[in-house]
Amino acid sequence: MNIVTLLLVAAPTLFWDQGIDTAAALKKNGVSTIQVPPAVVDAWKRAGLDAHPLTPAELEARIKLPDPGIDRQVATLSPTQRPFVVANGWRFLRKAGGQFRSQPAAGVAKLAVAEALAFGSDDVLKIDPRDLPAAGEMFAFFRRFDAVTLPDVSQVGVVDDGTESVGEVMELLSRRNLLFSPVTAPRPEHALTIKLGTKEYPTKSATDPSEFAYGIRGKLTDDKRLIRFFGSETVLCRLVGDKHRARLYLVNYSGNPTEGLRVRLRGDFAKGMAHSDLEAVARPPMDHTSVKGVTEFTVPSFNMVAVVDLQ
């Protein structure tokens, strides 16, 4: 089993330290698998839950994730007009097969679950119990379509030396939906490979990671970028696929619904089906075109997450 597959079979779960009397609430909200303190595993199983033990030390040993969302930089004197998106997708990609933990603040659980599911990450989330219905909705949304085992698609390789600088580069590439993979050496499928500390990419060039990512965008050119979005600066994506099909996960971090997101994707995809968390049934994307190796379509609306299958 390779790393990619490991990522895809993993799934986020809730760490639940509430009383057994909350079993009905969990079931009502479609949550059947939970992580619990070892001492209460049997009790939870008797209550009908698929409970797995997780000690405090095991939980602590996992990589802590920040809350996803928008950092409006209100304390900054000259904030950028573009909101700063706090997202964890790049962390999931960087530590493929990694074990993560989250403790999202009240109201954030749904988005945290969404991005963990989109990236198929092994994330244990300790949510505010009041967010159980919202988290349950997101788990339910992802059950509406089949899981796929397709590899991540990227066009930039990043040689990861484990430093914070490389992490920032990955984060800002992700922020611009410049799809990357951590690599140890250049791969033929990548248009370019970034290795900080080289003549082409001196370490100091990444001092401003946003500007660095903009430079990478310029090297790729907008025309040749694997994927682009129009109509939002706060939707980040994960793309998986092979020669025959692709799946696009869209996560909207803005806190407001996204309407009419236009997607431009390199590749010829004749048809698609979009699942939106605002619509009960899937339907084909709007204004779908596929011309000369470029596919475009519009996702009508979604609140926090949409998943588009393309063939």
């Binding site: 309407e259 009419g260 204004d287």
Partner: peptide, 19 residues
């Protein structure tokens, strides 16, 4: 973006914006 024509547009990068 839903009331706009996806096929009629001006594309320009002013300040490094992605959209």
């Amino acid at each position: 973006n839903s009331s706009y024509d996806p096929f009629t547009y001006v594309d320009v990068d002013f300040f490094g914006e992605d959209d």
